[in-house]
Design a protein around this nucleic acid. Structure first.
Lengths: 131, 131
DNA sequence: TTGCTCCTCACGTCACGTGAGGTGGC
DNA sequence: TTGCTCCTCACGTCACGTGAGGTGGC
């Protein structure tokens, strides 16, 4: 799959996808002879995960860490008990942060609705004043 | 009121408040002899409005335009019928955009919750595997 | 050969963050 | 005089946007 199709499927811009590669978030599984980036279904899934994470306000670096941890845990390779515990701890940290950010998003949403409502009111009043 | 108190009351950073002044969003009503910025209650209210607008993703320039329009409409000064209509049209545009962005925020929130849930699941499964 | 898709620089932008070095005011 | 608050540059940062100039592949 070329980058254009990936872009339409994920809703991300070409530049964004390339940027994610620049910072080591998602590297295309292959390149064509001419140097075109080639993505697999798995790559697209990874981009979708990132897209879901975006509203949580994590930095790209944090996302890289998180993806590295889940990749490691689900790689099927044997992981020492100590490393497993370390990875789990890390994920729990992210999970906590995610919950907090979700709560935060709710506040933002409420604020935005608040603002939209007050804007509607102002418009109605201003229109009234003329009627 | 000095900038520090304004910062704690609005939850904005000193730099952010100064930045809003740089771009012409909120200018302190006065300065002390020594050059300290002095804000009135009205200034603080304006900053709160901006804070409520932030999650809507408007640029600072757009916010300036919006505030200018509402200020003009609610200034008490006589405004020609034509200008009044123009201002109202402008506000309606912002209102539309705001509604769209609220809908958008809901999608983002859903996505974020989605992600948090899948993260919880991954953790549970990873912990299970070891148990 | 023509188009459309893709490539790599590399500078620009938006909304601030972060010092550096200096001064105001109770 | 001592602290704490504030001041103005001015460069840095994060996540991309936006050309410029060039090439791949059906």
């Amino acid at each position: 799959m070329q980058i254009g199709e990936v872009a339409t499927r994920t809703g991300l811009s070409l530049r964004t996808i390339r940027h994610y590669e620049e910072v080591g978030l998602v590297t295309p599984s292959a390149r064509s002879q001419g140097g075109f980036r080639l993505y697999t279904e798995h790559d697209v899934q990874r981009l979708m995960v990132i897209r879901r994470m975006k509203p949580l306000g994590f930095t790209l670096d944090q996302m890289r860490d998180l993806l590295a941890a889940t990749d490691r845990l689900e790689s099927g390779e044997t992981v020492s008990g100590q490393e497993h515990a370390r990875l789990l701890e890390r994920l729990r940290g992210f999970e906590q942060a995610a919950e907090e950010r979700v709560a935060d998003l709710r506040v933002q949403l409420a604020r935005a609705q608040d603002f939209a409502a007050s804007l509607r009111e102002r418009i109605a009043r201003a229109a009234d004043l003329r009627a």
